[in-house]
């Protein structure tokens, strides 16, 4: 039975779509049959990050409104087997999504996939609520910054009240914290919140920590999820994150300032 995971944050621009793309790619690379759904109707981005924007014909709203079949709308990833993208509509708005329609789409996908990732829009309105409503697990993406942490806190509150699991009194959604754009140097100088601060405020299990990295911007612009860039710090951090999602115990990396040793001074750091 497929696991439905929502990638959410409340605040915009913290790296939800980047993380949804990177994690779904990582899961597929580990042999899990994965689909990633863009719930950001009207502000579609996932297709760009996944590099499949030229192959979009039908979208989630078409499927929900019965204008296209699910298999017509699913886009097969060119780089990894087992990975599919269900894009959002750019011309509609979030009112085009209905709870029943989303439920029906998810039900069909569940039969075929191991993991269903829902890339939530920013905010706490309809689109975000529908993206989280049917989730089994949630990845809350947070930047080391006060407004992002407060919005994540708000989202965690909604996850425990405005979801199917909460409303039907089932086991609560399993919540994970994913900290992105972490810059140990700026944490040391006090520009950013520390890892400990964030964990203390949000009181949620830490799934991963992604360092601020040039590789992420490059990956987004090239339309290649950063997980494919195995040499980069961010690529490795996402691979660790995926391993933890699959239940492996992996020590945390990239959260401390790197002391430059003799070798790295001579040959340059491994940060690219």
């Amino acid at each position: 039975m497929a696991k439905i995971i929502v990638v959410t944050s409340g605040k915009g621009g913290v790296g939800k779509t980047t993380s949804a793309a990177a994690i779904s790619t990582g899961l597929a690379l580990r042999g899990k049959k994965t689909v990633v759904i863009d719930f950001d109707v009207g502000l579609r981005n996932l297709d760009l990050i996944m590099g499949c924007e030229r192959r979009v014909v039908y979208d989630l709203v078409n499927v929900i409104q019965g204008e296209a079949g699910l298999n017509q709308a699913l886009i097969r990833d060119k780089r990894v087997e087992n990975l599919f993208i269900l894009p959002a509509s750019q011309t509609r708005d979030k009112d085009a999504l209905t709870k029943e329609g989303v439920a029906e789409v998810l039900e069909k996908l569940k039969a075929e996939f191991d993991f269903i990732l829902c890339d939530s829009p920013a905010g706490i309105e309809r689109g975000a609520q529908l993206a989280m409503y049917f989730a089994d697990e949630a990845i809350v993406v947070t930047n080391p910054e006060v407004s992002s942490v407060r919005d994540s806190d708000r989202i965690l509150g909604l996850l425990s009240s405005k979801t199917q699991r909460a409303e039907q009194g089932q086991d609560p959604i399993k919540e994970h914290l994913l900290i992105t754009r972490y810059n140990p140097q700026r944490v040391t100088t006090g520009d950013m919140l520390t890892l400990e601060d964030i964990r203390e405020i949000l009181a949620v299990n830490l799934l991963g920590l992604i360092p601020e990295s040039e590789a992420v911007l490059r990956a987004s612009n090239q339309g290649v999820p950063v997980t494919h860039d195995g040499a980069s710090d961010a690529g490795q951090a996402y691979a660790d994150t995926v391993a933890r999602l699959l239940g492996e115990e992996i020590p945390l990396r990239f959260h401390e300032m790197q002391r430059k040793g003799l070798l790295s001074r001579m040959f340059g750091g491994n940060r690219r």
């Binding site: 407060r150 965690l156 509150g157």
Partner: peptide, 8 residues
């Protein structure tokens, strides 16, 4: 029991 979160 638990964290009272923003908005709650």
């Amino acid at each position: 029991r638990g964290t009272v979160r923003s908005g709650q």
